[in-house]
Design a protein around this nucleic acid. Sequence first.
DNA 1: CCAGAATGGTGACTTGAGTCACACTGGAGC
DNA 2: GCTCCAGTGTGACTCAAGTCACCATTCTGG
Lengths: 213, 213
Amino acid sequence: MDQSLIKQYLLASFPQFEARLIETLIDNAFLKEFNEGDLLMNTGQNMRFTMLVVEGLVKLYREGEDGSEFFMYYIHPGGACALSMICSTKQQTSEIKASAVDKTTVLAVPTTLMDELMKNYKTWYYFVLETYRSRFEELLVVIDHISFKAMDERLEFYLEKQHHDLNTRALMLTHSQIANDLNSSREVISRLLKKMEQQKKVILHRSYIEYLK
Amino acid sequence: MDQSLIKQYLLASFPQFEARLIETLIDNAFLKEFNEGDLLMNTGQNMRFTMLVVEGLVKLYREGEDGSEFFMYYIHPGGACALSMICSTKQQTSEIKASAVDKTTVLAVPTTLMDELMKNYKTWYYFVLETYRSRFEELLVVIDHISFKAMDERLEFYLEKQHHDLNTRALMLTHSQIANDLNSSREVISRLLKKMEQQKKVILHRSYIEYLK
DNA sequence: CCAGAATGGTGACTTGAGTCACACTGGAGC
DNA sequence: GCTCCAGTGTGACTCAAGTCACCATTCTGG
């Protein structure tokens, strides 16, 4: 049944939540599934639910005016989208998108419930603040990289991150995909990858990259 | 007296705070003054106080490894540093600095008080969330600019922001300062400013720029 | 008033990275 | 087998922006 499934998910992914909070969430939230590639959140729409990721993987990226995109970070089970945690705000400026990388399950918590949760459950408000803080810091790291680092270093960091977040050395990525994520171009990425291969940091294959270091 | 001064400041800069919250703050927080150029917050130090700006102006910037800096945004009276709102976290990665632009007064609220404030005062937790949200969005805009825009556009945006935030057309900035804030070099900024002058968007003077558009 | 510092202007050069054009290759599907 | 196409490799070119060198102007402190 759905209720007990929610409980299982919460216990597994959000072990820090207090028992009463879990009960409240079971009574008020519902599960939602997304397939690979589905959009969880689109630009500027008013959020009526806070989404807690309980299974799968979500990719957050920024969309430029011309359609080019820019990878920011992944959200793993146990995380939530910071932006989805605010009850009904304008959000006109920020063009941000979230899409499922794998088959993903999220727990949708109505934003109308936020006041009560914040007030009554310490573990909830810790979670909200911690979510904001960590996303904030990730953005700072992103800013660091694009403003202070050159492409080769950014590429290495990107691959390291992929390796770490996806927990595999076999990175299923084409050069164009990487170029998109880093807002660069395929040729540039190809050349840099070639260099990295010579430095024995990766081995290149068709449609995937073996991460060594 | 200090107590009534705090009250005045709070009423002026944080009119949304409920009366009981203001009383609590009066009893537990204290004012702190900074002179122009003083550092309010340094890299990675554990924050023991949340700082609410009640007078003056605070500049937030990111420090690169080599000492170069990168302007992010201003905090006006009525605002607070999002990062200072988290009770004692690691914060090892983020090298972020806050310095006073003018003579600035802040209200220092002990972070040990956060739990109680969040729980008991709805206007407080709205404020905290709103602070996070708005800073987050500002960072997104920053990312947009450095990843999608060229220097000329970034410069125009920067000047527009200065004009808007400092509320004056007489921008007291040298070319080197601007270059620092944008993580560029003086010569580049000089040339671009020259172009903008030809386009009648600014008039250049020694040590200050008249913003026209 | 003078020396030195701060500020700004400019030409010449270098470089990282984006673009264009085109060639090669391995796999999927017929 | 063959075709087509996504994925990749590479040289040549362009351009924005950073760097270097040097000079001119204004300001400031003794």
